[in-house]
Amino acid sequence: MDLIIGLDYKFDNAPINLSIDWKPAFAIAGYQGWRGDELALSLRFTF
């Protein structure tokens, strides 16, 4: 089972968007258990 949680922020006076995403997971098949180590940081140009 996977879930993606994220935050997004657009700066008012700059063409920049900043976001962070976290993907926690719980594996049942093969029992790998809890995993919460997938994190992504994005900086985007907007127009």
Rank of each mutant, 00 (worst) to 15 (best):
L3G: 04
A27V: 12
D37H: 05
T46V: 13
F47H: 02
F47M: 15
M1K: 15
L43G: 07
D21R: 15
L3K: 03
F26L: 13
Y31M: 14
G33F: 01
F11V: 04
A25P: 10
I4V: 07
T46K: 11
G33L: 04
I16G: 01
F47D: 07
I20T: 14
S19E: 03
D37T: 14
L43I: 10
I28H: 08
R44V: 06
A25H: 09
L41Q: 01
I4L: 11
W22F: 00
A40Q: 08
L3A: 06
D2Y: 14
L18A: 15
I16D: 00
D2L: 10
D2H: 08
F45R: 12
L43Y: 03
D37Y: 02
D8F: 02
D21A: 13
N17M: 08
R44W: 02
Y31Q: 07
K10H: 03
I5V: 07
I5D: 03
S19H: 03
G6R: 00
D2A: 10
Y31K: 07
G36I: 05
I4H: 03
E38S: 07
W22V: 04
G36V: 10
D2Q: 15
G36A: 09
A25S: 05
T46A: 04
L7G: 08
K23E: 11
F26E: 15
P24T: 00
I5Q: 12
L7T: 08
N13C: 06
E38H: 04
A14T: 08
R44T: 04
G36L: 10
P15D: 01
A29V: 15
A29D: 04
P15M: 01
L41H: 02
A40F: 03
Q32D: 12
A40H: 04
Y9A: 09
F11P: 04
M1P: 13
F26T: 11
A14P: 11
D21K: 07
L39Q: 08
F45D: 15
N13G: 11
P15F: 00
L43A: 05
Q32I: 13
K10I: 04
R44H: 05
L7S: 14
I5T: 14
L43T: 12
L3V: 06
I20R: 00
I4G: 06
A25L: 06
D37M: 14
N13Y: 01
L43H: 05
G33D: 09
E38G: 07
G30D: 05
A25K: 14
Q32R: 15
P15S: 03
G30A: 12
S42P: 07
S19N: 09
W34S: 11
A25D: 12
A14I: 09
D8L: 15
W34P: 04
L39Y: 02
Y31A: 11
K23V: 09
L43D: 00
G30W: 02
N13M: 06
A29L: 14
W22I: 12
N17C: 12
L3C: 06
A40V: 09
L18T: 08
A29N: 15
A40Y: 02
K23M: 13
K23W: 00
I16F: 00
G33E: 04
F47E: 05
L41E: 00
D2P: 08
